[in-house]
């Protein structure tokens, strides 16, 4: 009786040891594989760093040349003297400035569709000017009445414009169009101060955001929500 028990116990022990060995082998295998992958990964990364460095140097040089050319055109507009002495002076100044500020002018630019963007932007400007004239007439009509018909409120809406250029175009357009000022942008949420109920509704229709998204070729999103009173927003901001 005891002998059979003992035998069973030893068999169990052997089985457990077998399992442990298999586990250990498995772990060892994965470890070996992992180190292999690690070295290969390191190798790849080294090459990537090299390529990225070369790429970055090339981009930097292109940015430098582009900035210097634009600034030189600007210098010629300002200067008005086209003798060799002043042109040389301008070239030296442009090279110094482009060396200092080469990474500012061309950050976050998507290459390739610049011409279409420029064309659409030019088509956008007349509409914007018309809106600005309307906005000035609106302000004038508000100010010149005896009893000013205003009902200020803060509205929020969320946008999904991606690049910073498009978001500042939208923000400045909002500031210039009738009865609205962009107050703050936090994580893509615009806080807009509107002068009365009607302009708030106009902004909620989201026409301008569609136009800006169309200029910079971004997906058109509009969900514009809830006209709130100021107190709730301040409560939310206080956290």
């Amino acid at each position: 009786m005891e002998v059979t028990l003992l035998l069973e116990a030893t068999e169990n022990a052997f089985r457990i040891m077998e399992k442990a060995r298999a586990h250990a082998l498995g772990v060892l295998d994965t470890a070996v594989q992992f180190t292999g992958e690690q070295t290969r990964f390191m190798e790849e990364k080294r090459w990537q760093v090299l390529f990225a460095g070369a790429q970055r140097r090339k981009t930097r040089f292109q940015n430098f040349v582009g900035t210097a050319l634009i600034l030189f055109a600007f210098w010629m507009l300002l200067s008005g003297h086209f003798d060799p002495f002043h042109l040389t002076l301008g070239a030296i100044c442009c090279i110094i400035t482009a060396y200092l500020f080469h990474d500012l002018l061309f950050a976050n630019v998507r290459v390739g569709d610049m011409r279409v963007v420029a064309l659409r932007f030019l088509c956008y400007i007349p509409w914007l000017i018309q809106q600005i004239v309307l906005s000035n007439l609106h302000v004038a009509s508000v100010v010149l009445r005896r009893k000013m018909p205003i009902n200020p409120q803060i509205i929020t809406f969320k946008t999904k414009l991606e690049t910073d250029i498009s978001s500042i175009t939208l923000a400045n357009s909002i500031t210039l169009t009738p009865g609205t000022i962009t107050m703050d942008i936090r994580d893509g949420v615009y806080y807009v101060h509107a002068l009365d109920q009607k302009v708030a509704d106009d902004l909620n229709a989201g026409e301008m955001e569609d136009r800006v998204a169309h200029i910079f070729m971004e997906a058109d999103h509009l969900y514009v929500e809830d006209v709130l009173d100021a107190a709730r927003i301040y409560d939310a901001l206080r956290v």
Binding site: L71, L78, S79, C93, F101, L104
Partner: peptide
């Protein structure tokens, strides 16, 4: 900023 610096250099040089 780059245009501003170029304008300043223009004011200096002229």
């Amino acid at each position: 900023v780059p245009f501003m610096v170029i304008y300043a250099l223009y004011v200096i040089m002229h």
